[in-house]
């Protein structure tokens, strides 16, 4: 089809859209983050549980609404992230997401595809950023 329409909607994408994996909440989440893609009205919240050293991702869950691309991408990402290190999460880029989805994503839809990845990364950045701040402010207090 070339101009990028239903090529994106391969069976795997539709399957993850209709039967999302790891959908829901994690009450013991180390951090939770929500993000939106205003163009589609997609919204995704991700809960991430880290190990005690806060280096490895143990469990991930997501919830949200939006287009099939954004929701399937979130579902697949929850599986991919389990067992990854926080550092590996930070290094993920859009090519990794496109590889994970296994289809060509048209340029106008790339924001849908990478929303979940951004939510997870931003959540980690904010969590560790605030921890650093807490540390430095505590140090300053001392």
């Amino acid at each position: 089809m070339g101009i990028g329409g239903s090529d994106m909607y391969r069976q795997q994408i539709l399957d993850h859209y209709k039967n999302p994996r790891n959908y829901g909440e994690l009450e013991d989440a180390t951090f939770t983050h929500v993000g939106e893609n205003p163009m589609c009205g997609d919204e995704i919240t991700m809960d991430v549980v880290l190990d005690d050293e806060e280096e490895v991702i143990e469990r991930v869950a997501f919830r949200g609404d939006g287009c099939a691309i954004s929701q399937a991408s979130a579902s697949m990402l929850t599986q991919k992230l389990q067992g990854m290190t926080v550092e590996e999460l930070a290094e993920l880029d859009r090519d990794d997401v496109v590889d994970m989805l296994g289809v060509d994503i048209s340029p106008m839809r790339i924001k849908c595809a990478v929303l979940a990845e951004k939510v997870a990364q931003d959540g980690a950045d904010i969590y560790f950023g605030e921890k650093d701040l807490d540390k430095s402010s505590t140090e300053a207090d001392e």
């Binding site: 089809m1 101009i3 990028g4 329409g5 239903s6 994106m8 909607y9 205003p38 163009m39 589609c40 009205g41 939006g66 287009c67 099939a68 691309i69 048209s106 839809r109 849908c112």
Partner: peptide
């Protein structure tokens, strides 16, 4: 059951141009 943006992407296969969003 089909998000407007998915719908628009699929309509594009038939060269039908519509708007999807808010």
């Amino acid at each position: 059951s089909v998000h407007a943006h998915d719908l628009s992407s699929i309509l594009n296969d038939s060269a039908v141009a519509i708007r999807a969003g808010d």
